Simulated scan of single mutants.
Amino acid sequence: MDRDEESIVAEVVERELLLMSPAVRSSRALVDQLLDPEFVEVGASGRRWDRRSMLSGIPVMQGAADDGPQYVASGMTGAVLAPGIVHLTFETVLDGRRARRSSIWRKSDDATGWRMYYHHATPVPDA
C-alpha cells in the first residue's frame, strides 16, 4: 500500500471509530453525516438495517451512552479496493459480546467525504 492509500485508509478508520463513539452514536445528525444515502447493514443479530431505520434507532442502541457499554475495536485493517472505495475489517467487543465486522466506505462527490455504504457484523461464539 502506498502513502496515499495509507492516508485514505487512516481517514476511513477514523470515521469508523467515530461511529462507535457514544458522542456520535447518541446524535442522529452526526451519524447522518457518516452514512451513505444508500447505506445497508446486516447486524450481528441478523437484522437488516437501511439508512432510515438506523438513523431512527441509533440514539437508543447500545454504545450510545457514556455510562453504558461501549464498543472496543481491535485488529482494524483496511484496503483501497478502487478509487473512492475502502474496505475495513476488524473485531469488536460490546458488553462481553464479540463480533467480526466488515465495512465498505465510499467517497462522496460532495463535501461530506467518506461515508459508510455497507456494514456487516457476525457474532463470534464463546470458545
Rank of each mutant, 00 (worst) to 15 (best):
A82H: 10
A121M: 04
A79W: 05
H120K: 10
R106E: 12
D4N: 13
G57E: 07
D109M: 05
G63Q: 09
S108A: 12
Y118H: 13
L94P: 07
V80Q: 08
R115K: 13
T77P: 00
E41L: 13
L30V: 04
A44E: 00
I85V: 15
R106D: 07
S103C: 04
L34Y: 06
P125S: 14
Y71Q: 02
R101L: 03
R98Q: 13
D109F: 03
S102F: 02
P83S: 11
T92I: 12
I85A: 15
F90W: 14
H87Y: 03
D36G: 02
S7R: 14
G43T: 11
R52W: 02
V72M: 08
V124N: 01
R15G: 07
G57A: 15
D4A: 15
Q62E: 13
T92V: 13
L30K: 13
A127T: 06
P125Q: 14
H119I: 04
R47C: 01
G96A: 10
A82W: 06
P22K: 05
S102E: 03
S26T: 13
S45M: 09
L35R: 13
V60W: 14
R25S: 11
F90D: 04
D2W: 05
Y71K: 04
H87N: 07
A82N: 10
T89Y: 04
V124D: 00
L19T: 15
D2P: 04
L55D: 06
R48Y: 07
L55V: 09
T89D: 02
V40K: 09
G84M: 10
E5T: 05
S56H: 04
P123Q: 12
G43W: 08
S26G: 09
G63C: 08
G68C: 06
S45K: 08
Y117T: 00
Y71P: 11
R48C: 12
A99G: 01
G84L: 11
R51M: 08
W105Y: 11
A99Y: 01
S56T: 09
T122H: 00
D2L: 09
T89I: 01
P37V: 01
T92K: 02
T77F: 00
H120I: 05
V24Q: 05
Q33C: 07
E6P: 00
A73D: 03
E41H: 12
W114Q: 06
M76S: 11
D109S: 15
D32L: 14
V93T: 14
S53I: 02
R98I: 03
A79T: 15
Q33E: 15
L34N: 07
A23V: 09
S21P: 09
A111Y: 04
P83A: 13
Q70I: 12
R48H: 10
V72N: 05
P22A: 01
S45N: 06
